[in-house]
Amino acid sequence: MTGYMSGVLAILGINIIFAYSIYITAATGQLNLGGAGFQAIGAYASAILSNEMGFPIGLTLIFASIFGGLISFLIAFPILRTKGVYMVLATFAIAEIVAGVILNSDYLGGPTGIVVNDYIETELILIVAVTVVLFGFYLMSTRIGLAMRAVHDDDAVANLMGVNTRAIQIGAFTLGGAIAGLSGGLYALYFGFVEAQYFNANISIFVLLFVLIGGTQTAWGPLIGASFFTLIPEALRIGDDWRFFIFGIIIVGMMIVRPEGIVTRDALDRVWFKILGKTNV
């Protein structure tokens, strides 16, 4: 594996994990436009744990996820009081506050950032990514996943069907925060450096777009979305500015052609039908 390939695969892995964190919340109908904030929490947590406490890599990553999940759990209660556009704005505000706190904290390195001493190889990122993807598919195939999608479609009816909608939403938000923390931990350990300016609004916007363009109806969405938008620009080998310009055009075009995302249930059914000659349920 060349250095270039390995770098691309590492970013791909981190993006896929990050996309699943946003997807799990989006699957319950909650849009999180503050992904960067939760990723930053995980990244800084692992930088501190690894540098100051001397945690081994595995433990660092586990605690980065737990920390991300814990903070998400605590803010889920006020955040889930908000709905629709208000929730989009509230999560956006949280990411800004996280960045603001980091910039103002000397312990967290302020605007200069922190150099992380430990490091990981691409292979570990890929193993974690595959695990997260499998977990995403597993979760959506259970009755909990069914309940999550029901909450997405109609929370009032889901509630009458016996689904604890609040627990599902809080759980999804917490799990999303934990996975975002994990992706942040991997980022910090792979690149060996964290700074608040990296975890900006654009990162939150991109990851939400990965998920929405991929499609929130099935667990394929974030995988396809994150891969598509990470690999296509690499394949085209174009400059960064052009890359995002084309990204923008693809988004506007996609929303016109396939507003529910690349992978929808109906499309998936047609594919299964072609392969198996019968409908997959």
């Binding site: 777009l209 929405l212 500015d241 310009f245 990204f247 923008g248 693809i250 988004i251 506007v252 929303m255």
Partner: peptide
């Protein structure tokens, strides 16, 4: 959908 599309235009104009 329009929200996502407007994010697309944000990227188009900025870049």
């Amino acid at each position: 959908i329009p929200l996502v599309s407007s994010l697309g235009f944000l990227l188009i104009f900025e870049y």
